[in-house]
Design a protein around this nucleic acid. Structure first.
Lengths: 143, 143
DNA sequence: GCCATTCTACTAAACTCGTCGTAGTATTGG
DNA sequence: CCAATACTACGACGAGTTTAGTAGAATGGC
């Protein structure tokens, strides 16, 4: 794809993780929240949000397994799936990706956009952000 | 799609904007940066980043026009394209989308992830963020 | 006037994503 | 033991995305 925005890599990118698709992320969210799940577990959870076929979830999880997004325990008849990467890792990846694709690599511009939506106006959120900022600033000067 | 995370719609969602695809966003970035462009303008800019066909860009822009993502001035032979929505609007949309899809609707959690990447450690960026935070906090109490 | 260039439109191939049906195999309840 | 049930694997399909080739119209240089 000639349109990608030049992630600075150094050849042989065979093992770098691709970002999950929409449906994959929805499944990962359930896996992170509920821990290792069978197809049925995931499907039950999904079903509370809307109509979705069992085999659809099955197929998605099989594909995610092929891609290496999830790990599979096949020791029991009902295979048990769990995420390969942590939620934090994946979130970081998604954020980095968005910063590169839409914010010219500038994290602070993303912040600005975030604050500009008015969706973050809650005082609790602001306080939380300030605290994080302080922590980063304090311990940020790495030895 | 039963897997979408329940955008709260109220019927007749015909006019809500969908988020641009990867290639569309790349083109929009050029349009925002350079102002209204012909297909050739966009293609020339794209060509500096990699090999890409002229008609590929043409087709993309035609599709984007059909979708209403860009506006087209056909008064000259070489049609001139410009974004329909501002960069800020689109950025806000993308950020909101990511917050909902991957951060459980919590903007502050996105902040945390952003600060955790280490990519934002630049003092200048931190200062910039602090300032933004102050401004939001100050004028945040809407009349 | 004519030929090369430039532009748009049309067509379509290759690929991904999301969806699900069907088939086959293993487990289990009566 | 056998029928119902539950599970995985496989295949397929429709929609959307990205890519590009080709046709045909408009323009311009000489």
């Amino acid at each position: 794809m000639a349109l990608t925005v030049t992630d600075d890599w150094s050849m042989k990118n065979t093992n770098l993780p691709k970002r999950p698709t929409e449906a994959e992320l929805a499944i990962l969210n359930i896996l992170w929240q509920r821990g290792p799940c069978t197809v049925r577990d995931v499907h039950d959870e999904m079903s509370t949000r809307g109509r979705i076929g069992y085999t659809t979830i099955l197929k998605l999880l099989q594909i995610m397994h092929e891609k290496g997004i999830v790990l599979r325990d096949e020791s029991e008849r009902a295979h048990v799936y769990r995420p390969k990467r942590t939620q934090e890792q994946t979130r970081g990846q998604l954020v980095r990706d968005l910063v590169n694709r839409a914010f010219d690599g500038s994290a602070s511009q993303l912040m600005m956009s975030l604050l500009g939506t008015g969706k973050v106006a809650s005082p609790a959120e602001l306080a939380s952000i300030r605290q994080m900022l302080d922590e980063v600033d304090d311990g940020g000067a790495q030895p």
